[in-house]
Amino acid sequence: MYEFDYHKAKNVKDAVAIAKKQDEAKYLAGGMSLVPPMKLRLAKPGNLIDLNEVGELAGIKVDGKTVAVGAMTRHESVAESKDVKKAIPALAKLAGGIGDPQVRHRGTIGGSLANSDPAACYPTAVLGLGATIETDQRKIAADDFFTGLFETALKEGELITKVVFPVPDKACYIKFPNPASRFSIVGVFVSKKGNEVRCVVTGAGPCVFRVKGIEDALKKDFSPKAIENYKHPASGLNSDIHGSAEYRAHLITVLAKRAVAGAE
C-alpha cells in the first residue's frame, strides 16, 4: 500500500466538502473493492474519505411503491431486511448471494454501484428494476448510470446518497458464480411490472446491459418457454479463464429462463 491521508466524514456535506478540497480523493465505504488494489499498489488514492460514520447514509425505507436503500447500507442488512424480503424478495436474495459473509457485512450498495464492477450483482437490480440513484447533487435514472467498464455517470467527487427501487410485480436474479471469487460469471435479473419487462445481464459485458431480444419475447409471454430459442450473440462479450464469450452467451439464455421461472 502507498501512503495516503485519511479523513473521517461526519455527514454528507462534510464528505463532499473534503472531496472538493483534496486531490485524488476517494470515498471509503466498505473498502471491499477499493482496498485490495491499494494493498497491491495498483491504486494510489492520495486521500480517503471514510463514510462509515455518516449515519444519514445508511438504512432502508420501504413504502408501498418503493424500496429506498441508503448508500452505506451493507449487503447483509438488505439480505436480512424483512421489509425488503416482502417488497422485493429478489433484491434481498441478490444481496444475500454477494461474495461471502465477510464481504456482505462490509460491502455497501453505494460502493458497489460507484465501482460498477463488470461482474457485480447490485447493478443488475438497479437497472433491472429501473431504480433511481440519488446523489448529493441530483437524481440519475438507472438507464443513464452505468456507462462502461468501472465507469458511471458520477462526476468527480459526486456522492451517492441512496438508491430508490420501484416495487415490481415480480422479479428474480440468478447468478452463475465464478468459483473463485463468487462474483458472477454471468448473472441475469428479470423483472415484470405491468407491461414493462426488464432483463439485465452482468458479468458478460463491460458493465450491466439490457437484453432487448429477451425483453421483447417476455413482454409477449412471460414464460421460460418464450425465450428458449433466444441465442445471444457471443461477439463483444467478456472472455477469460472462467468463461469464453460463447459460454457466457449460452448462459444468458439458460439463466434468463431460470430467472423467469423463479420470478416472485
Binding site: 465464478n178 468459483p179 473463485a180 471469487s181 462474483f183 479463464i241 472462467h242
Partner: peptide
C-alpha cells in the same frame, strides 16, 4: 500467471 490471486484461483 493468470491465477495469481484467490479471485481467479478457486479454492
Amino acid at each position: 500467471l493468470l491465477t495469481a490471486s484467490f479471485m481467479d484461483y478457486a479454492m
